[in-house]
């Protein structure tokens, strides 16, 4: 029996992970099973981040390890993996702001917690949020921003969602370095998450997950 992939990945043992995956592929194991273990490992990483055992460097590193797992497994895949998702989230850094670190962490955490995340990137104009909400039917929207100018961009984005007749179909959360309850009121968002973990909690609440 090969060493435990879930454990090796969640403990961030890169070389061990690669070795295990190579051995399992050599043994002609179903690549989907390997990916499933990797997913479980990432879930543990997310939990450790939520309990402040892991921090951003650990998330970034786990993402890198996962990337090498996927690269090893991909050529052997015959069909796409289908995992059931908790719900869709449209997320991006608002217009005028190009900061991505905070947004990327939220994307990562939502992803490992089972959400289907549509990441629009940075400096996203309000209309692009609206289009993506329409296209995906996502009930949850996340607006990220680091600068004080983001307050206005967030406000305008919520207004654009409203003007498109979608405001009662989505819940909007905001987040970023200088965000407070005051900013939430100003932007007419539904709530703000003080960090990625709070963001996941909000998404779960809104998606009706316990």
């Amino acid at each position: 029996m090969a060493k435990d992939l879930v454990k090796a990945l969640s403990d961030l043992k890169e070389q061990e992970v690669v070795k295990i995956v190579e051995e399992r592929l050599k043994a002609k194991e179903d690549p989907l099973k390997i990916l499933e273990d990797a997913r479980k490992g990432m879930e543990v990483v997310g939990k450790r981040f939520a309990s402040s055992e892991y921090f951003i460097p650990d998330l970034v590193y786990s993402g890198e390890i996962l990337k090498s797992v996927t690269e090893l497994v991909k050529p052997k895949l015959t069909k796409e993996t289908e995992t059931k998702k908790l719900g869709k989230v449209v997320l991006g850094t608002v217009a005028g702001d190009i900061h991505d670190i905070g947004k990327d962490i939220v994307v990562f955490m939502l992803d490992v917690n089972g959400f289907e995340v549509h990441d629009l990137g940075v400096d996203v104009p309000p209309q692009k949020f609206v289009e993506k909400i329409k296209e995906t039917g996502a009930p949850i929207v996340g607006l990220s921003g680091f600068l004080t100018l983001a307050f206005d961009s967030m406000k305008q984005t919520v207004e654009a969602i409203k003007a498109a007749g979608l405001r009662d179909k989505v819940k909007v959360m905001i987040g970023g370095g200088q965000i407070t309850d005051e900013v939430t009121r100003y932007t007419s968002a539904d709530a703000y998450g003080k960090d990625a973990v709070a963001g996941v909690a909000l998404a779960k609440k809104w998606a009706g997950v316990k």
Binding site: I56, P57, V60, E64
Partner: peptide, 11 residues
Amino acid sequence: GTRGVMLDMYR
């Protein structure tokens, strides 16, 4: 960059 330096902390 942030990602680079964080990977270097490990690698």
